[in-house]
């Protein structure tokens, strides 16, 4: 069994270390306006080919992609080599207060053309979000958090015109796969973080807002390439810079 509770020692020691680091870093954070962390996430190498999706099993789906066939979205690379849908979050250095602040925006996770929009949605622990459908076909939305994370999976249908499902996640988890069993190609992610975060746009650019002054480890997560980290220091009210590069496999 790989479940955490069967091996409390590593978990405990990780918690103790985290607590100590927390206390040390917390000391150093000086009062000051909130800054930002901006940058670009790029791919080093040729962008892999994203396979086309055969939606012929559900004509309602395929009809929406007649002009431009849908493709997989695991690695979306822009003209300048920037990677879309990379999640940036602060993995170390946040004060307890900053880590537990929950944004009031309520993002939407849409089922549109039998694809998830956005393909990757980042949210804070306890941040409300909506699952909506724009499609004239029934979907079932089935997030699959790992056991022992504190998040519990569920499976609900959304027929055409169904009202939004409003919910949240209770614990950090990078990342929760989301699927639709009716349309097996539909695959997306909910990335649940603590504290400020950002997701890269189609050119790989991002800005993490509302970052208190301090020294941080920023982690970039990409569904196929995994994670990269960078140390960043944010001065009160200023914009700090952090760029990331993933190597093509």
């Amino acid at each position: 069994m790989k479940t955490w509770y069967k091996r409390p020692f590593p978990v405990l020691s990780a918690l103790v270390i985290a607590a100590v680091v927390f206390a040390m870093v917390g000391e150093k954070v000086k009062a000051g306006g909130e800054g930002t962390i901006t940058g670009t996430v790029k791919l080093n190498g040729t962008a892999p080919h994203m396979k086309g999706i055969d939606m012929s099993k559900d004509p309602v789906c395929s009809q929406q992609h007649q002009s431009k066939p849908a493709t997989m979205e695991n690695i979306m690379v822009g003209a300048n080599g920037g990677i879309q849908n990379v999640v940036l979050y602060i993995s170390d250095g946040l004060s307890a207060g900053a880590a537990s602040a929950v944004p009031s925006e309520e993002p939407s996770f849409d089922q549109k053309g039998c694809m998830y929009t956005p393909h990757v949605m980042a949210v804070d622990v306890n941040q409300k979000f909506k699952v909506v459908t724009s499609d004239q076909t029934t979907h079932n939305i089935h997030p699959l958090p790992a056991a022992g994370t504190g998040n519990i999976g569920w499976n609900k249908s959304q027929p055409p015109g169904a009202p939004p499902i409003e919910t949240d996640w209770k614990a950090q988890e990078i990342a929760i796969p989301v699927k639709c069993n009716i349309h097996p190609w539909m695959h997306g992610w909910h990335v649940v973080v603590k504290g400020p975060y950002a997701v890269t746009d189609e050119n790989g650019n991002f800005t993490i807002k509302n970052v208190p002054a301090g020294s941080y480890t920023v982690t970039a997560w990409q569904e196929e390439y995994g994670t990269q980290t960078a140390k960043v220091t944010v001065a009160g009210g200023q914009a700090a810079k952090a760029d990331f590069t993933f190597k093509a496999k």
């Binding site: 079932n140 939305i141 089935h142 999976g153 569920w154 499976n155 609900k156 249908s157 959304q158 027929p159 169904a162 009202p163 499902i165 069993n181 009716i182």
Partner: peptide
């Protein structure tokens, strides 16, 4: 209520 752990979803919202 659906059969959790399987593709069979809950329809109670709809």
């Amino acid at each position: 209520t659906g059969l959790d752990g399987t593709p069979m979803p809950s329809f109670s919202d709809n």
